[in-house]
């Protein structure tokens, strides 16, 4: 029984990592209508930026800010010079997906070229392990959870209480109408890429932190899990993504405890396929129909 409670705890960590990633991903889709398959690549780029600083003795939690910056910059550049031009040319959804896929491959392999195929690990102090009953988490893991909660709360505050957040929500639900109401959707979109890019960078670093060691191709498998969380909650719904992340985080960890850790991703995939076939608008009651 204890192993399941411990799994619940690990599930929280997985969920925390996944939430940061999935919320960024789903917001990109909501506001710009692009399913950005390069997301994993940008995550890993952020992780490597953190590693670079980490090797020079900078504390991992500060490195994350650099990851956020890197993620933000890369994402904004990608949108400005690649995605938007194609969108302006009225490229079909298939074309755009191929574009993001190709971009992701370029980024991931550029990292591979620079960093080499050997896996790397961050140097950090995991901190004391806290125990509470069968729960067992290191300080670092608790830190990840805390960071994730803080980020989720910030996103919530942004969307609900700020003018920018309202503009983002308006653009997400009806870009033409938003534009006619005077919202500068172009601006909103750029800022969205900035913010979600930062989330992406941080997500990469916490992912790497939680995984222990990582290589550039680690993101390829993880993008599947991100997709699962995003689509489960309804693509384009930030709160849905958080819920999806929690569900998937817990289910994968519990199944790993029950059967074997090898099939964690498979469970996520099966969930993803079931949702896509049975209820593509996600499990939340009021899904955005696109």
């Amino acid at each position: 029984m204890g192993v399941y409670i411990a799994a619940l705890g690990f599930g929280l960590v997985s969920a925390a990592v996944l939430a940061v990633a999935a919320v960024g991903f789903t917001m990109q889709f909501a506001i710009t209508d692009i399913l950005n398959l390069a997301y994993g690549g940008v995550m890993i780029a952020g992780a490597y930026v953190a590693y670079f600083l980490n090797q020079r003795g900078v504390n991992i939690w500060i490195d994350m800010m650099a990851s956020a910056a890197a993620g933000a910059v890369i994402s904004v550049l990608l949108n400005r010079f690649l995605y938007t031009p194609f969108q302006r040319r009225k490229a079909s959804h298939v074309t755009l997906i191929i574009v993001t896929l190709a971009t992701g491959i370029i980024i991931t392999n550029a990292m591979l070229g620079f960093a080499g195929p050997n896996s790397v690990t961050y140097t950090f102090n995991g901190g004391p392990t806290l125990r509470w009953g069968s729960f067992q988490l290191t300080s670092a893991q608790l830190g990840i959870i805390a960071l994730s909660v803080a980020l989720m709360a910030s996103i919530h505050a942004l969307l609900r209480f700020t003018r920018l957040g309202k503009a983002m929500r308006a653009t997400a639900s009806n870009p033409n109408l938003a534009r006619n109401c005077g919202i500068r959707t172009g601006r909103v979109i750029s800022v969205t890429w900035l913010i979600t890019g930062a989330l992406c960078g941080i997500a990469g670093t916490v992912f790497a932190l939680d995984s222990g060691s990582f290589v550039p191709s680690s993101a390829a498998g993880f993008i599947v899990v991100i997709l699962a969380a995003a689509i489960l909650g309804g693509v384009g719904q930030p709160y849905g993504a958080m819920l999806g992340a929690l569900l998937i985080g817990e289910v994968t960890e519990l199944s790993a405890a029950a059967w074997s850790p090898d099939y964690k991703d498979v469970i996520a995939f099966v969930l993803l396929l079931i949702v896509m076939v049975a209820r593509p608008q996600g499990i939340l009651l009021r899904g955005a129909t696109r």
Binding site: F86, T95, I98, I106, T108, A110, P117
Partner: peptide, 26 residues
């Protein structure tokens, strides 16, 4: 270069080929 650089470059070029053709000669 480091081991694995050439295959990695291969993929970078394939990705770039896709983007180039999609833009200039779809």
């Amino acid at each position: 270069g480091p081991p694995g650089l050439v295959p990695a470059l291969e993929w970078v070029i394939i990705g770039s080929l896709i983007l180039t053709f999609l833009w200039f000669r779809p």
